[in-house]
Simulated assay, not measured.
Amino acid sequence: MKNQLTTLERRAMSSICTPDGSMLIVAADQRNGMKAVMNCPDGPVAISTRQLADAKADLVTYLGNHAPAILLDPEVALPQIVDDGVLGRSTALVVGMDASGFETVDGLRYTRFVEGVTPRTVRELGGAVAKMLWYVRTDRQDAGSRVAQEIRELVEACAREGLLLIVEILTYRLEGETEEEYAAAFPSLVADAAALAVDCGAKVLKLPYPGSPEGCDAVTAAAAGVPWAVLSAGVDHATFIGQVRTAVAHGASGAMAGRSLWKDSLAMTTPERAEKLTELSQPRLAELREAVTVRSEAAAA
């Protein structure tokens, strides 16, 4: 296995996993994406930072605290959710370091850090784990590219802080590329991006579902023993459960789910959110927990 975990990182890894060792994280670091599903009569723009923070607090209370870990952002959710005692003591905190949106340079996408957020800041916010997102096109970017250097630098900075880093990779369609061309390239783009991240020192990966069992096998081979979790990418819950079952049966180590769990549960008031998160989202989380255990059962067989 490449990129072995240190003792500190191994301890952090265990905190974001179920007792059987499968990653299971509720993703709630979205900002604009979360506003878009809150059903405000005047639209997402009318939702204030305070209202979004309240929604995130309810999401933690009624959903995140039922998972091993939750991913939150330092722009809206933190440190208030920790300081106010909303986050349960048995739920690990993963801190998202990436700012909303991206910049485009020569047709390639680049994410940015939330201003002022460093590995030390993650520790100060109470985080056990950090997460950073990068957009990658391995047909245009290699080990000498800007994105590869950014991954290496943050991996090294987190290692100095004794902090486990989850490297999230997304791929995307280039300008002038047809949907058909992108769809055909997508599985290899995901696998090749996983290989690039691992070569840059990544120890845990968060990746899109690569489309098929064969695609998952290719990602697992490219990860070279580095654990990877499949992300929900906004698909509906039933679709994601199927993807997770396939991914973990073909080498994935778990799942990180956001909108598939809560996108139809974030109403504008706490009573509505409490009801929907309890009645809709909690059963989905329980089903997701069962789905990631396929990995353990397959290994035992």
Rank of each mutant, 00 (worst) to 15 (best):
E279C: 14
A252P: 00
A286K: 11
G251C: 01
L207V: 05
A223L: 06
A252V: 05
S265K: 11
S253H: 14
E214P: 05
A274H: 13
A229E: 01
A222D: 05
P208N: 15
L285F: 03
G234P: 04
D264K: 09
G201W: 06
G225L: 12
A238K: 09
T270S: 15
P271D: 06
T239H: 13
W228Y: 08
E272L: 14
A218C: 11
A286T: 10
A221T: 14
H250T: 06
A221C: 11
L266M: 15
G234W: 00
H237N: 11
K263G: 10
T246P: 08
M268W: 13
P227S: 07
G258F: 02
I241N: 05
M256I: 12
G225C: 08
L231R: 01
T270L: 13
L261P: 00
R284I: 02
H250D: 03
S253T: 11
V248D: 03
L266Q: 06
P213D: 13
T270R: 15
A247D: 05
Y209W: 04
L277H: 02
L205R: 04
P271F: 00
V230M: 02
L207K: 01
T246G: 08
E275G: 09
A222V: 01
D236S: 14
S232F: 03
L280Y: 12
E272N: 13
A218W: 06
A257L: 06
S212I: 08
W228D: 02
T246A: 12
A218P: 07
G234R: 00
T220N: 13
S232C: 04
E214T: 12
E287S: 10
W228Q: 01
Q243I: 02
G211R: 03
G201C: 07
K263F: 14
L207P: 02
